[in-house]
Simulated scan of single mutants.
Amino acid sequence: MTELRQKILEAAVRVFMRYGVGKTRMNDIAQETGIARPTLYASFKNKDEILSASILHYSDLSLAGIRHEWDHLEKLSDKLDVFYERAIIASFQIITASPDARDMIGGHNAVGKAATKKAQLDKMSAWAELLEQYLPADEQRPVSSEQLAQYIVLSSLGLRDHAENEIQLRQLLQVQKQGILALLNCD
């Protein structure tokens, strides 16, 4: 990614958080970036393209950070904690800090929702790959790595979206964690 594209995406996220995706205009993003509108349009065709690129960029950064931390940990319980902190609790904090953040994180429209779906699939893929080392041999598996990965990602996002506050979210994630560890007979 070019430095300009990254600068635009960072500015776009700030503007989306400030005004909401629906009220943000390309001119707002150009001004926040400190560039002329033609320069913005040379990098992105429209706001939908910026929204999609922003969602994927920040999701990729988050997943890269999660994978990096996973590389230094052995226990599944610790890896779950990293995922919860960096993907679920961090996004909950963003959502609760800005009334318009849910609009962006949720994808806002069909293009954004497609980007959000891809980000979720990327996380599921990372989990499925990771879980292979914790699941017993194929004939003894209670679930497939793909099924469990899907459960981890989608249910933790559901908990994030319905928790009343961060304390409740953390408690619910601990219940989920205990269930996953019990299912896999891990500590």
Rank of each mutant, 00 (worst) to 15 (best):
A137W: 02
Q140L: 14
C186F: 01
R37S: 11
A11G: 12
L9R: 14
I89Q: 06
Q174K: 14
L169P: 05
I180T: 09
Q120L: 09
D161L: 15
D138G: 00
H72F: 08
E69F: 01
E3C: 10
G179R: 03
A128H: 03
T2P: 07
D103V: 04
V15Q: 14
D122W: 00
Q178P: 00
N185T: 12
H108M: 02
A149Q: 10
S155P: 01
E3G: 14
Y19N: 15
I29C: 09
A114Y: 02
G34E: 04
G107W: 03
K47V: 01
L73A: 11
G65N: 15
R86L: 15
G179D: 03
R37K: 13
V82T: 13
H57P: 00
D161I: 05
R67C: 12
E10P: 02
A128F: 03
I66R: 05
L159C: 11
T39K: 09
Q178W: 04
V21I: 11
L131T: 12
E166G: 11
D48M: 01
L183H: 02
T33E: 06
Y151Q: 10
P142L: 09
M104D: 00
Y58N: 12
M17I: 10
L131N: 07
N46S: 09
Y58H: 15
A90H: 09
L154K: 13
P38V: 00
Q147M: 13
R141N: 08
V153F: 10
I167F: 12
H68F: 10
F83A: 15
L130A: 12
L181K: 05
K47T: 01
K7F: 07
F44D: 04
H72R: 14
D138F: 08
L157S: 13
S43W: 04
M26K: 04
E129M: 06
P38M: 06
I167L: 14
A119I: 02
R102A: 14
L131S: 07
L61R: 15
I89M: 10
V21P: 02
T24E: 08
H108C: 05
L169A: 05
P38I: 00
R14F: 08
Q93K: 13
Y19W: 04
G22Q: 12
V111I: 11
K113I: 08
S59V: 01
D81G: 06
A12G: 13
G112F: 03
A114F: 01
I94C: 08
A87E: 09
C186K: 06
R5N: 15
G107R: 09
I94E: 11
S43E: 13
F16C: 10
H68V: 02
Y84A: 15
I105G: 01
I66L: 11
L121N: 10
A137K: 06
D100Y: 14
I105W: 08
G22S: 10
I55Y: 04
S54Y: 05
G20T: 12
T2C: 06
A110Q: 05
S52T: 03
A110H: 06
E85Y: 02
E129L: 09
T116N: 04
L80Q: 06
L183A: 11
D103Q: 12
Q174T: 08
T96E: 07
L51K: 06
G179Y: 02
I35W: 05
T33G: 08
L184Q: 01
S77V: 09
G34M: 04
E32R: 13
A182K: 08
L157T: 07
G158I: 04
Y58W: 13
